[in-house]
């Protein structure tokens, strides 16, 4: 399984149509590499949770196959489920259970013999150790989220699914959570998270997948994605305002600011020629004096919005 070429999770032609007729997944193909952090981005109802739930065994696929560690999730569910930990989106915990009890329960449920030291270790990692004998319903929302993570980690999974882990979580916990994710990654745990917060994906993920309307629109290294889909803009500040752009500049599709003092040129970073040199020469030839130059790169958020938007227009 440590073979880099064998994906730890492999999804092929996965579709899911719910009883009500809603088609949540429309043919997903996805390979998740061992040890990576994969962020799945997508608007509400895109199918992120359905995808995760299917891999974890909560949703029966309509067609297609999923393997985890090379084992089929339906035929070899006992093997695959042991490899997986799931932190659900909602704070679902038995209200009266004690923190220690509920984590112990999870460990047993996933087939591991009791190991109090291991449970203490997990609780310590999540700063929950002093809450071990507290009932779950007396904890704050953030603490409950930690308990859910502790439960998911109790059976030492190789793949951890975090469904919207930072929804409604304060800044401090979010930072703690990313520290934990980093630590888990060092231990070789593969992490798949869904999120609305694009900055998070940008900050923490190795690869980013964008899901919209039951389809995986794109999946790539974060850097590649930003490079291939990212657009750069060159802002040219002028000495004097221009009222009308000369015809010689029309091929650059420049945007003129209202006060006429700034021109914005958008170019593709992947293009063979960015056109910057030509633009500057043309500006010079037109007798437009430059004051300053700036470039900016589009963020993952812009890319995401563009992709989803484009998909909806299809």
């Amino acid at each position: 399984m440590s073979n880099e070429n064998t994906p730890i999770v492999s999804v092929r032609g996965l579709t899911k149509t719910y009883d009500g007729g809603h088609q949540a997944l429309k043919g997903i193909d996805l390979d998740i590499r061992e040890g990576e952090i994969l962020a799945l981005l997508g608007p509400n109802g895109a199918g992120k949770t359905t995808l995760i739930s299917t891999v974890c065994g909560l949703v029966t696929p309509s067609s297609g196959t999923v393997t985890v560690g090379g084992h089929d999730i339906i035929k070899d569910y006992r093997v695959t489920r042991k490899l997986i930990g799931l932190v659900p989106q909602e704070l679902t915990l038995g209200a009266f259970d004690l923190v220690g009890d509920t984590v112990r329960f999870s460990r047993g449920l996933f087939g591991l013999p009791p190991n109090e030291d291991r449970i203490d270790e997990i609780l310590t990692d999540l700063s929950l150790i002093d809450k071990k004998d507290d009932p779950v319903n007396r904890l704050s929302g953030g603490m409950k989220r930690r308990v859910l993570i502790a439960k998911a980690l109790s059976h030492e999974p190789r793949v951890l699914f975090l469904d919207e882990p930072t929804a409604g979580v304060d800044v401090e916990l979010r930072k703690d959570m990313w520290k934990l994710v980093e630590k888990l990654r060092q231990d070789g745990v593969t992490i798949i998270l869904t999120t609305h917060y694009i900055e998070e994906a940008e900050e923490i993920a190795d690869r980013v997948g964008v899901i919209s309307d039951g389809r995986l629109l794109v999946i790539d290294e974060k850097a590649n994605l930003m490079a291939s889909l990212g657009r750069k803009q060159l802002m040219v500040d002028l000495r004097a305002p221009v009222e009308v752009l000369p015809d010689s500049l029309s091929k650059f599709n420049l945007e003129r600011s209202d006060d006429g003092l700034r021109l914005t040129y958008t170019f593709d970073t992947q293009g063979e020629r960015t056109g910057i040199t030509a633009l500057l020469q043309a500006l010079n030839a037109a007798g437009i004096g430059l004051k300053d130059l700036n470039t900016s790169q589009s963020s993952l958020e812009d890319i995401f919005v563009n992709l989803v938007h484009r998909d909806h227009e299809r």
């Binding site: 065994g57 093997v79 489920r81 799931l86 915990l93 209200a95 449920l109 087939g111």
Partner: peptide
């Protein structure tokens, strides 16, 4: 009760028949 609170997800995703 686990169905009501949602905690049944854990049983359903566990390696258990």
């Amino acid at each position: 009760f686990p169905k009501f609170t949602g905690t049944v997800y854990e049983v359903m995703s566990a390696p258990i028949s």
